[in-house]
Simulated assay, not measured.
Amino acid sequence: MKIVVLEGSPNKNGSSNMLAEQFIKGALETGHQVEVIDAARAKIHPCTGCIHCGYDGPCIQKDEMEQIRESILGADMMVFVTPLYYYGMSAQLKILIDRFCAFNGSIQRKQMKSAVISAAWNSDSWTFDALKAHYDTLVRYLNLEDLGAVYGKGCGTPSMTARSKYMKLAYDLGRSI
């Protein structure tokens, strides 16, 4: 299976990317192909809502999103990776997802698999409620098959994350795909 990992952290060596690395390690060990797209460093513009694309492309904007689109549509699975910022995904990942507008139909027809990986400082029981609701809505709208999630509570720093149970959970999720 070809997996595209959409990393949304502006902190390249941060907790959510550490969890993503473990997922990737597990997926590679079981023979999957993995491509990482670093949304925080990609040269993509926010969606303007012009609907010139007609929801199935092409987008009128000329940036790196065309290559990202090809990678996503060439994959069997998307993994959304984000730190938890104010109880939602990072702006960097959200910009990328908003640009799905230009190929929503293609994603929906493809019936891809998906997973989500996130890290947060908080450890409250409700910490990930809003992100989970958003992810579940994406899964439903884009006709994705959810294969799992790692919601790393109490992963506020890389050292906290490295000592957490979530490193193994992310690795195990990658191996289970």
Rank of each mutant, 00 (worst) to 15 (best):
K2S: 13
I3E: 07
V4T: 14
V5L: 07
E7D: 11
G8T: 04
S9T: 08
G14C: 01
S15L: 00
S16W: 06
S16H: 01
S16Q: 02
M18V: 08
A20G: 04
I24T: 12
I24N: 05
K25N: 09
G26S: 08
L28R: 09
E29A: 10
T30R: 13
G31T: 11
Q33H: 11
I37P: 12
I37T: 14
I37F: 12
D38V: 09
A39I: 07
A39G: 01
A39M: 05
A39E: 03
A39Q: 02
R41K: 14
A42M: 05
A42L: 14
K43I: 08
I44C: 00
H45W: 08
P46H: 07
P46K: 04
P46N: 07
C50P: 09
I51R: 07
Y55G: 09
D56A: 15
P58G: 11
I60P: 03
Q61F: 10
D63P: 03
E64M: 05
M65S: 01
M65V: 06
Q67D: 15
I68K: 06
R69V: 01
R69H: 10
R69E: 09
E70I: 12
S71R: 14
S71L: 08
L73H: 02
L73M: 08
L73Y: 06
D76Y: 02
M77P: 01
M77A: 02
M78H: 02
F80L: 14
T82C: 02
P83C: 01
Y85C: 03
Y87K: 09
Y87M: 10
L93H: 01
L93S: 03
L96S: 08
L96Q: 01
L96M: 12
I97G: 05
D98K: 06
R99Q: 05
F100S: 07
C101M: 11
C101H: 12
C101S: 09
A102R: 07
A102C: 13
G105M: 12
G105A: 13
S106H: 08
I107K: 00
I107A: 03
I107D: 05
I107R: 00
I107S: 04
Q111S: 13
M112T: 00
M112S: 02
M112D: 03
A115E: 04
A115K: 02
I117N: 10
W121T: 14
N122P: 06
N122C: 08
N122M: 10
N122S: 15
S123I: 12
D124L: 13
S125Y: 07
S125M: 13
D129M: 13
A130D: 15
Y135L: 09
L138D: 13
V139K: 15
Y141Q: 14
L142P: 02
L142E: 14
N143P: 06
L144F: 11
L144G: 00
E145V: 13
L147D: 05
G148S: 01
Y151K: 03
G152D: 03
K153P: 02
G156A: 10
T157M: 04
P158Q: 09
P158R: 10
S159L: 10
M160F: 14
T161C: 00
T161Q: 04
A162Q: 15
R163N: 15
S164H: 04
S164I: 08
M167K: 07
K168T: 11
K168I: 08
A170F: 01
A170L: 01
G174W: 00
R175T: 15
S176N: 13
S176H: 08
I177N: 11
